[in-house]
Amino acid sequence: MLNLIDTLLQGVMLGGQYALMAVGLSLAFGVMRLVNVAHGDFIVLAAYLALICMTTLGLHPLAALIVVVPVMAIVGYGVQRLLLNRAVGRDIMPALLITFGLSVIIQNGLLEVFSADSRRLDAGGLTAAGLRLGDGLAVGWFPLITFGLAVAVIAGLEALFARSALGRAFRAVSDDQEIVQLMGYDNRHLYALAMALAFAVMAVAGVLFGIGTVFDPAFGPPQLLFAFEAVIIGGMGSLWGTLAGGVILGLAQAIGFRVDPGWGILFGHAVFLLILAVQPRGLIPKTRDA
């Protein structure tokens, strides 16, 4: 019984991490109808940027966020403005293949610079300390922080989308990129801002990921797949759906790992495929077809 609760708790915490990773993907799709195949690689890139900050500036990984978040936001703005805006359109192939190319470039670039060695962002005692919930049951502070941050980021973005002028413009450009220009908005700038925002969240996700797990240049693609699964399971109706999707994926993997360590990831994929089979529009589907 205690084992079961522990597994579920771990699954939920893992889900928070996946949700945080998925937010950027969900955002880019929501605004630009674009799937960034290099999503996971940019997350890993953020972790390496934090590593550079730590070794050159001697910063704590969480303090490195002050540098990594704005840098990644600028990278996101540039990627959208210089590359992806030229490929936005009815044909999905150019954007898909451009980000696929970026994914390969980032992976191999990191390999050249940092080698294939595994790294970890050392956060001191942060990853060791935990909160005791009862006899034999504890949850680490770090996963709790990650989960809390995922909830906070999602709540913040939902508020931005629902209430601010920028959020309104994001929704409008997603609805009709031609008419929004007549409202005085440069759609290319709006897309780039949305991507910058997505990359800022990816930077946070990347740094937390690097603190919690060892990583190497090849770690990007799995993160893309997990983020993608969280988004699809959630149903793209809202970012809260993405959180739910992340938690379901995390639970599936945690239960899978408990059954047999080799089956954890596969369990996650299986749940994704199952939901695709029975509820292809996800758990919280978008009520209106754009």
Partner: peptide, 27 residues
């Protein structure tokens, strides 16, 4: 560029209205 024309004083009511479905009337 279309986004600069509104500042010059031109506004269009497009054919088929083309309201933003994700936005409320007031938005």
């Amino acid at each position: 560029a279309p986004h600069r024309l509104v500042g010059l004083g031109l506004a269009l009511v497009p054919e088929g209205r083309r309201l933003f479905p994700s936005l409320t009337v007031e938005e």
